[in-house]
């Protein structure tokens, strides 16, 4: 079988060595078992061990290997390498400071996630057994709890690019609604108060880039819409 050769154009920057970022052209021969973009990147590292990116589970559940692939955010481990136009252009997720190569500083992203108090609040005495929740009530959490915090969505969002310190961003707001929608959570008012300002929630202009790029097929825009509804209903 003839070798499959794939050409890349990859954003490279090592602050320890490079004065400024540059795009590296590199070609790599793949083995038949190399199916995903991540497989190709691991193969590429056999050729150039300085190419840096995060990776772990290689099955789309840990959220490590998010990057900008031919102009669109996605996970390398869930992207078929043969589906991509060559040269495959890889850049770090947009809008966050680059640490090295495809590795970005996610501090701001997690700060926003933490800012929505991503934990259940229930001040009643702890019961001996589980708190009851009907299957229908539980179903409300589907499409919300599956988020893997890969940051594909927030870093595809112009509102987040412009105000990463003030706008919570789609990932954080999806998490906010995950707790608002949980019948076991009692902090609804405080959670809405926490989002009631011109930026934190309302900078979302429903551009829907987040929906377009989410590798788990989640819909942050819809969740944000529901939070806005709750705000309105609370006001009247």
């Amino acid at each position: 079988m003839s070798k499959r050769s794939v050409s890349f154009k990859i954003y490279r920057y090592d602050p320890d060595r490079d004065e400024k970022p540059y795009m590296q052209d590199i070609t790599v021969d793949l083995e038949p078992s190399d199916k995903k973009l991540l497989d190709a990147l691991v193969r590429l590292r056999g050729k150039d061990d300085s190419m840096s990116f995060r990776r772990s589970c290689r099955e789309g559940v840990c959220g490590s290997d998010a990057m900008n692939i031919n102009g669109k955010n996605g996970l390398a481990c869930l992207t078929d390498v043969d589906s991509l136009a060559q040269p495959i252009t890889l850049r770090p997720l947009p809008g966050l400071p680059v640490i090295r190569d495809l590795i970005v500083d996610m501090t701001q992203f997690f700060k926003q996630y933490h800012s929505i108090k991503p934990y259940l609040v229930n001040n009643e005495p702890t019961p001996e057994r589980e708190r009851l929740q009907s299957p229908e009530e539980r179903e409300e959490l589907n499409g919300l709890y599956e988020c893997i915090l890969c940051a594909c969505c927030s870093t595809a969002c112009p509102s987040f690019w412009w105000n990463p310190d003030k706008f919570v961003g789609p990932a954080g707001l999806l998490a906010a609604y995950r707790f608002l929608a949980d019948t076991r959570d009692q902090d609804t008012n405080a959670r809405l108060d926490n989002l009631e300002d011109p930026y934190r929630l309302f900078r979302c202009h429903s551009i829907m880039n987040c929906v377009d790029v989410c590798p788990k097929n989640l819909n942050p825009t819809k969740a944000i819409g529901k939070i806005k509804d709750m705000m309105v209903r609370r006001a009247v």
């Binding site: 934990y119 259940l120 702890t126 589980e130 708190r131 009907s134 299957p135 959490l141 707790f179 949980d182």
Partner: peptide, 16 residues
């Protein structure tokens, strides 16, 4: 874990 908020699936009577 359920008290921490883990979203377990539920039986018809609301249990884990």
């Amino acid at each position: 874990l359920e008290h921490y908020g883990m979203p377990f699936d539920r039986t018809d009577n609301g249990k884990i």
